[in-house]
Design a protein around this nucleic acid. Structure first.
Lengths: 110, 110
DNA sequence: CGGTATCCTTTGCGATACTG
DNA sequence: CAGTATCGCAAAGGATACCG
């Protein structure tokens, strides 16, 4: 089921943060810029996350054969389109997370 | 960060499927109904998922002290509100997953 | 009926070191 | 600079058995 697979991607620790960051950086950025834009991410995870995003057609990887090498990642139209429903989730979290916290507190109080 | 926590919840294997199923069942259902409504879920995971949803205030657990015991779960207003942005994601998947698959195929062909 | 307990395998991912 | 390779641990979750 496609929904299941999408949720898995969305749910992993870095995918959404990376696309959102790439968008914030103007839709195009180098590996090292992303590394700085996503605090706490390791090279290993940034690399693997970008690889998956590339494979899924959500970003494009462009290698410039220079020395030192330069690689730029650009968000695709498909990737951009995913940002809309994603933003809906972000907005929901901002609007309602406090309520969730309260529910947890009350629950845990018992 | 709230968004990070929400994405973790959304991303785990069963949470979203359980809320969506509960909604489809009319917003209220028994444990065994949910078990049947979410194919492949184990008792263990349904139980733990519902426990978390209850703790977060997204569903309410109601125990009827009968023999045999009956337990009903009802989606709360907060839970319902989460369905909106979630549905946005589901819609995106339906509209665009084919494109993702194609991107994967082309990528893998190389 | 609606769970819990236990066990065990798989997956995620951080840390560190190394490289074209 | 932009990765890859290797290691190792912790958490997720499936299978099965049992219980109030």
């Amino acid at each position: 089921m496609a929904v299941r697979e999408l949720l898995t991607k969305i749910g992993d620790k870095w995918t959404i943060l990376v696309i959102l960051s790439l968008d914030l950086l103007g839709g195009r950025a180098r590996f090292s810029e992303l590394e700085r834009a996503v605090p706490g991410i390791s090279q290993r995870m940034l690399s693997s996350t970008l690889k998956n995003l590339d494979r899924d057609g959500l970003v494009i990887r462009e290698l410039f054969p220079e020395v030192p090498p330069r690689v730029e990642y650009e968000i695709t139209a498909l990737g951009k389109s995913l940002l809309r429903p994603t933003q809906g989730l972000v907005d929901w979290a901002k609007a309602n997370w406090e309520q969730v916290r309260e529910a947890q507190s009350k629950h845990d109080a018992r």
